[in-house]
């Protein structure tokens, strides 16, 4: 460590460092084994060792002869996640700002959001399906499933905004106004730079929670599956490494999204510290 030394590390450091390392192995080990086994050869064994590495199971995925309609499910899951992300950012961020002031019903809306967060996904799934039936509408990924996903991503977004806006003291804005800045200048030069990394975090949550959501999608997508539902059916039907290949592909998509989000936060931080 390059930082100022505080003397010898206590023994607890080593105990906890070991715990942490074991936890990280526990967290990533299984994922890595799936990643490796998705390159299994024609022996189609679901376990180690890896024999004759090949890409055949990835090929299988995109040629839907034996497995389900993976490309189709992906073409629904991706736009759904993107729409959910956009709406989550807009709605959660504006709502976050509302909570900086006192307004009537604030407590009610807050507890409704928390309840929406902790309600079992399947319960809500039933509710939304029944609501759609009463209204005579059919369930679709871009209507009912979108709503089901929002009921889960928005409370998350709101909690993140609470954490972010907690750091934005109203005195910064007052100072800006006192110095004669217009509202637009204040938003652009004071509020946005502080809040922006948080907005990216909200977007990341909006995308990934929707992209991977299973219980809330189950009854609400209608007849055409999203990707997690497709994977769910595959867990029971498909007994080939194609399942692992699909796992690898979706995990890669998730990692690209995470890298984009974290990378842009880092870039903003760096640019900001460079300009001031």
């Amino acid at each position: 460590m390059a930082l100022p030394s505080y003397g010898k590390r206590p023994w607890t450091f080593y105990v906890l460092a070991t715990l942490f390392t074991l936890f990280v192995i526990f967290l990533y080990g299984p994922m890595i084994s799936v990643l490796i086994l998705s390159f299994q050869g024609p022996s189609a064994a679901l376990n180690f060792p890896l024999r004759d590495p090949s890409l055949m199971w990835f090929d299988e995925l995109f040629n839907p002869r034996r497995v389900g309609d993976v490309p189709g499910a992906f073409r629904r899951s991706l736009p759904l996640a993107l729409i959910t992300m956009l709406l989550t950012v807009v709605i959660a961020v504006t709502a976050g700002f509302a909570f900086r002031h006192r307004f009537r019903g604030a407590t009610l809306v807050f507890y409704m959001a928390i309840a929406s967060l902790i309600i079992p996904g399947l319960v809500l799934s039933i509710g939304i399906l029944v609501t759609a039936r009463f209204l005579g509408l059919s369930a679709n990924w871009y209507t009912t499933a979108l709503g089901a996903h929002l009921s889960w991503t928005l409370p998350f977004g709101l909690l993140i905004m609470f954490a972010v806006l907690g750091r934005l003291s109203p005195s910064y804005e007052e100072a800006s106004y006192d110095l004669g800045a217009t509202r637009w200048q204040t938003v652009k030069d004071v509020v946005l730079p502080i809040v922006f990394p948080g907005i990216i975090a909200v977007a990341l949550f909006g995308f990934t929670l929707s992209y991977d959501e299973f219980p809330r999608s189950w009854l609400t997508v209608g007849t055409l599956n999203t990707l997690p539902l497709e994977i769910w059916t595959m867990t029971t039907n498909v007994t080939s490494p194609a399942l692992y290949a699909l796992g690898t592909v979706t995990t890669i998509v998730s990692f690209i999204v995470i890298a984009l989000a974290l990378g842009s936060i880092l870039l903003i931080q760096r640019r900001r510290s460079g300009s001031s």
């Binding site: 807009v90 709605i91 959660a92 504006t94 709502a95 700002f97 509302a98 909570f99 900086r100 002031h101 006192r102 307004f103 019903g105 604030a106 809306v109 409704m112 959001a113 309840a115 929406s116 309600i119 319960v123 809500l124 039933i126 509710g127 939304i128 029944v130 609501t131 009463f134 709503g147 089901a148 929002l150 009921s151 928005l154 709101l158």
Partner: peptide
């Protein structure tokens, strides 16, 4: 502005929560 702004800002969230949480739960 303060009087009505928060209501406007929280309206979309409230709408979504009513439509896709409160009403469905009530119907369950």
């Amino acid at each position: 502005r303060k009087a009505w702004a928060p209501y406007l800002q929280v309206a979309p969230l409230t709408l979504v929560l009513l439509l896709f949480f409160a009403i469905p739960v009530a119907l369950v």
